[in-house]
């Protein structure tokens, strides 16, 4: 059976609609549950070593590999506290609203010409739309907690999203212009000659910076600035609901690393002369490398103040991203 480019591998294995649907959902869910754990563990270890420490060493005997599983087991056992003044329904729904968009995002991430769940024609549009839904969960959490720190954190998260969604989308738009397609697989295939990071290095930096802010990761973690507003919108959360927010954060790292590698690093495309390594491994390696970069930036830089944060976006990233689009447009028309 010869696989057709553009058709998902599961479709070739099973003809039945429901079986295919369940299998695909299971694959996405399992990947979503495993990959963030890997990133979380990497963060523990990388951050520790960058600070001259060892990090977790006991759980699972070998270099604490099972630390996050142990953490998960701990979160399950914790009491599920809902504050008396909280809007209980919204409060309970918020973690799901924050988490689900990142799960759905993996549906369109391609791991090879054949290995993907869905090849949407509007793939990148779908991805960018979903990645901004997550902040609604944060806003719900902050509002429903009936806690001033939560509310401040949530509003900061919303302000940050408004500021950084724009450079993120503009950076992606320049790529879409160069690739001439919105489909994730199409964008990867457009990079057969060279990766777009070489033609748009500034766009890559803009996209990466905006992704960090989108994830509210340090140095853009003003919404959860623990020294002033405790833990922002998540202050009142305990147990599994809190764990879901953490999972959303790490899932978000994996998701945005995957998007950035599709847009700029050629996705699953191997380096020249290294085609013997299978394509899905290339995709995973690129996701891993970008996740490492995100962790590395967290360890290195101090938190930006709220006004500095807005200044970086509106006065630096957005004009640069617009300029990038103009330049790409000129090249597209001229050549």
């Amino acid at each position: 059976m010869i696989a057709q480019a553009g058709e998902s591998f599961v479709n070739q294995w099973f003809g039945q609609y429901w079986l295919v649907l369940v299998t695909k959902s299971a694959i996405v869910l399992i990947f979503f549950l495993v990959a963030p754990l890997g990133v979380g563990y990497a963060e523990h270890k990388v951050m520790a070593h960058m600070q001259g420490r060892l990090g977790p060493m006991y759980a699972g005997r070998f270099h604490g590999w099972a630390q996050l599983l142990a953490d998960g087991a701990k979160f399950v056992q914790k009491e599920d506290v809902i504050p008396a003044a909280a809007d209980a329904w919204v409060f309970s729904l918020a973690p799901a609203v924050a988490l689900v968009p990142y799960i759905l995002l993996f549906v369109v991430i391609p791991f090879s010409d054949e290995i993907f769940i869905l090849n949407l024609d509007v793939g990148i549009f779908f991805v960018l739309a979903l990645s901004s839904v997550s902040v609604i969960g944060v806003l719900m959490a902050g509002w429903a907690s009936a806690n001033k720190f939560s509310l401040i954190g949530a509003l900061r998260a919303a302000a940050q999203l408004i500021a950084y969604e724009l450079p993120l989308v503009l950076g992606a738009a320049a790529i879409v212009m160069q690739a001439g397609t919105l489909s994730m697989v199409g964008i990867v295939q457009a990079q057969e000659m060279y990766w777009f990071v070489f033609s748009q290095p500034i766009g890559f930096l803009i996209f990466l910076t905006a992704s960090l802010a989108e994830l509210t990761r340090p140095p853009f973690d003003m919404p959860v600035a623990d020294s002033e507003i405790i833990f922002g919108a998540y202050t009142e959360y305990t147990g599994l609901k809190f764990a879901f927010f953490l999972l959303a954060e790490y899932g978000g790292i994996v998701a945005l690393s995957a998007i950035a590698s599709v847009l700029f690093l050629g996705g699953y495309l191997p380096l020249p002369a290294m085609e013997f390594i299978p394509e899905p491994l290339w995709m995973l390696a690129k996701i891993g490398a970008l996740s490492f970069l995100i962790i590395w930036l967290r360890v290195t830089y101090p938190r930006l103040r709220e006004d500095q944060l807005q200044r970086v976006s509106w006065l630096m990233l957005i004009p640069l991203a617009l300029l990038q689009i103009v330049v790409v447009g000129v090249f597209k028309v001229a050549f």
Binding site: A48, M50, Q51, G52, W296, T300
Partner: peptide, 13 residues
């Protein structure tokens, strides 16, 4: 700054 953190990561803890 990135160089400093990377240097520490490569040193034995």
């Amino acid at each position: 700054g990135l160089g400093v953190t990377l240097k520490h990561a490569l040193r034995p803890s």
